[in-house]
């Protein structure tokens, strides 16, 4: 027992990373199950069991593989591998900016996979996903910049515990980040690239040509990503984890309500919207931090 404890202490970042790799998809799946139940309740339905995402993935893994070519499978695997890398780097307390880049490339792998097949729906979905990235990526970078301006480092492990919660210093960035989460979870009104609801328009967009185990790989990646996003939300109130969890829960509820209250809108609307309101929110928050730090804006 003591030997085990000593091992854990000595290899703390690695143990944390390994644990995160196992726990993250479970949390993600539970969140997704909860999401589907809550959505059903909002619509006056009963909804599926909480463990439905697990059932789905187990079923998908059991299906016979079919594909269009080899390339798309390579990209599905990279999509998952890079998202796992994001989880590992977060758990090891690595550089936030690098984590952001790796996260972006996980998404680019999915986009490239969708583009590698000669399927019109898949291509359209991919292009819309690129537009989504163009819409939210600058806001994520600004968020990370804001964190640097507060703590003077990108390295998560050097961020001091305690102190003033991030939410107090980055309230507007937090609001903009909520919109980013909405895009990332493919929720209305931003679910343009692949949607549970758009059967007729783009069928299933970017993931249409993935099926069976390959679709399962993408779904698992989505679970990791869901978990990562709400972990980041919780970190906005890091000094008290309970408050952080409450914050994440509120954000989660907000996403579901927004999804059910909105219709899907067009891609260009999304880009225009994201580059105006959330962008202005994020930029003004960052500008305020610069001014507070006493630097000039020039």
């Amino acid at each position: 027992m003591e030997a085990l404890l000593a091992f854990v202490v000595a290899w703390k970042p690695y143990v944390l990373a390994a644990a995160a790799l196992v726990v993250a998809p479970v949390i993600g799946a539970l969140l997704m199950g909860l999401d589907r139940i809550l959505t059903a309740r909002i619509q006056g339905r009963v909804g599926p069991p909480l463990l439905q995402p697990f059932y789905d993935i187990v079923k998908l893994l059991g299906k016979a593989p079919i594909a269009l070519n080899r390339v798309q499978v390579v990209y599905a695997c990279l999509h998952l591998a890079l998202m796992m890398l994001v989880v590992v780097l977060l758990a090891m307390g690595q550089d936030l900016m690098m984590i952001l880049f790796v996260h972006a490339f996980s998404n680019i792998a999915l986009i490239l996979g969708g583009m590698s097949v000669r399927s019109p729906y898949s291509r359209i979905g991919s292009q819309r996903q690129i537009m989504q990235m163009l819409a939210y990526e600058p806001i994520l970078v600004l968020m990370v910049v804001g964190i640097y301006l507060i703590f003077g480092t990108f390295q998560i492990s050097r961020i001091p515990a305690g102190g003033v919660p991030l939410l107090v210093q980055l309230p507007l960035v937090f609001l903009a980040f909520q919109m980013v989460i909405s895009i990332k979870l493919q929720k209305s009104p931003f679910d343009v690239s692949t949607s549970h609801h758009a059967h007729q328009e783009i069928v299933k967009g970017i993931t249409i040509e993935y099926s069976g185990p390959y679709l399962a790989v993408i779904e698992i990646t989505h679970l990791y990503e869901t978990c990562v996003l709400f972990t980041v939300v919780a970190l906005f109130w890091a000094p008290n984890p309970l408050v952080g969890l409450l914050l994440a829960a509120l954000s989660f509820l907000f996403q579901i309500v927004l999804d059910n209250a909105c219709a899907r809108l067009t891609t260009m609307w999304m880009l225009r919207y994201m580059w105006t309101l959330p962008m202005v929110l994020a930029v003004s928050n960052i500008a305020w931090l610069y001014l507070r730090n006493g630097a000039s804006l020039g």
């Binding site: 070519n69 390339v71 583009m115 590698s116 000669r118 690129i130 163009l134 990526e137 970078v141």
Partner: peptide, 21 residues
């Protein structure tokens, strides 16, 4: 600029690697 860089590279890579089986 970085965000837009990604856009045009991704488009091109997508086109080049589009391939039938």
């Amino acid at each position: 600029g970085s965000a837009m860089t990604v856009l045009f590279w991704a488009k091109w890579i997508g086109r080049i690697q589009t391939v039938s089986y």
